[in-house]
Nucleic acid binder design. Structure first.
Length: 317
DNA sequence: AAGAGCATCAACCGCAACGAA
DNA sequence: GTTCGTTGCGGTTGATGCTCT
């Protein structure tokens, strides 16, 4: 028998909607409402299935829809709710007037996951990557830990370097002398990479580095005592510590200080944005050896989001 | 200028939940 | 309690436009 199709496959148009179809659907719904989607296309004179009509209406034609870019506050709301609700897009969209679940889902998948990744935060768990590495370290046997941690950080590193490369980030070698103070702030973005890790960078990154000039603020975590400029104050700084303490990155866009990047890690007041300003990294010492969080970046009770109580999911014991 | 690669967004698919009979 | 029809939801795909080489 099989599944009953939602509509007859024959004589049903698919793909992009035309202006004429939009007008037919909108005017029909304006007159008759949205009762019984199966009958709507038939009555409205459309060669579409009801499901397609419903989707077109809810995602595009509805008069109360908001168009255009997501605002900072909308992004913050999505991030906060996703941390609590996961991929419940309709519930998240319900908190954003004028936005549909499809809008939210697309925005999350295309923009916000990349933003979070770039900040060193896992978009699935909303935890810092360093935190995840620690969790791995505490649940697996040492031989497995080393390989898994390296692989996980490698994934993150490649992703972030890819993102930063595309944004024209300047790469500097920590072995090289720091830029002159007069240059601080000259380049909006740069990244420091420990010389020991240079060989591990993807080829494209290395090419980027070779062709770039050192001209901006830099910060690097090279296994020695932390050092950085003050040029990044307030910007979204992320320093994922490698297991060998050799990788550090800082980024921010001058003049584009992101409200959410601040509140993400500091505004809530419960999560410290880890940076070299806040905490020095022990020289060369493996954080795992100390039984500490990798790099000592995030406190163990780090809470990413300061949510109102009614949004929190309380475990049922 | 052309083509490849990438990002974005609209649309589709299949499953689950819900409500009426 | 069961069946059937409808609606809602989330994952995925495909078309389109943009950027880069």
């Amino acid at each position: 028998m099989g599944r009953i199709p939602c509509c007859e496959r024959e004589n049903v148009k698919r793909g992009q909607w035309t202006l004429e179809e939009d007008n037919k659907l909108a005017s029909y719904i304006a007159q008759h409402g949205t009762r019984n989607w199966r009958l709507i296309p038939k009555n409205a004179g459309l060669q579409r299935c009801g499901k397609s009509c419903r989707l077109r209406w809810t995602n595009y034609l509805r008069p109360d829809l908001k168009r255009g870019e997501f605002s900072e506050s909308e992004e913050q709301t999505i991030m906060k709710l996703h941390a609590v609700l996961g991929n419940r897009w309709s519930m998240i969209a319900g908190q954003l007037p004028g936005r549909t679940d499809n809008d939210v889902k697309n925005h999350w998948n295309t923009k916000l996951t990349k933003k979070l990744t770039g900040m060193g935060i896992d978009p699935v768990t909303h935890k810092p990557f360093s935190h995840l590495i620690t969790e791995i370290a505490t649940t697996l046997a040492p031989p497995q830990v080393a390989h898994l941690a390296e692989a996980a950080l490698g994934c993150f590193k490649d992703e972030m370097l890819h993102l930063l490369t595309k944004k024209g980030v300047v790469f500097v070698d920590s072995a090289a002398p720091p830029p002159a103070a007069s240059n601080i702030g000259a380049a909006p973005e740069c990244i420091g990479v420990d010389a020991r890790n240079m060989g591990r960078l993807p080829k494209t990154i290395m090419q980027e580095r070779e062709s770039s000039e050192i001209k901006g603020v830099w910060a690097v975590m090279d296994g020695s005592a932390g050092e950085s400029s003050d040029g990044f104050a307030g910007l979204g700084e992320v320093f994922p510590a490698n297991v060998d303490g050799g990788f550090g990155a800082s980024y921010g866009i001058e003049g584009e200080e992101s409200a959410w990047s601040q509140s993400t890690c500091t505004g809530a007041g419960k999560c410290r944005a880890a940076s070299l300003h806040d905490e020095e990294i022990d020289g060369g010492e493996l954080a795992a050896d100390r039984g500490d969080h990798v790099g000592g970046m995030f406190s163990s009770d780090c809470v990413l989001w300061d949510l109102p109580d009614d949004l929190m999911i309380h475990p049922i014991m």
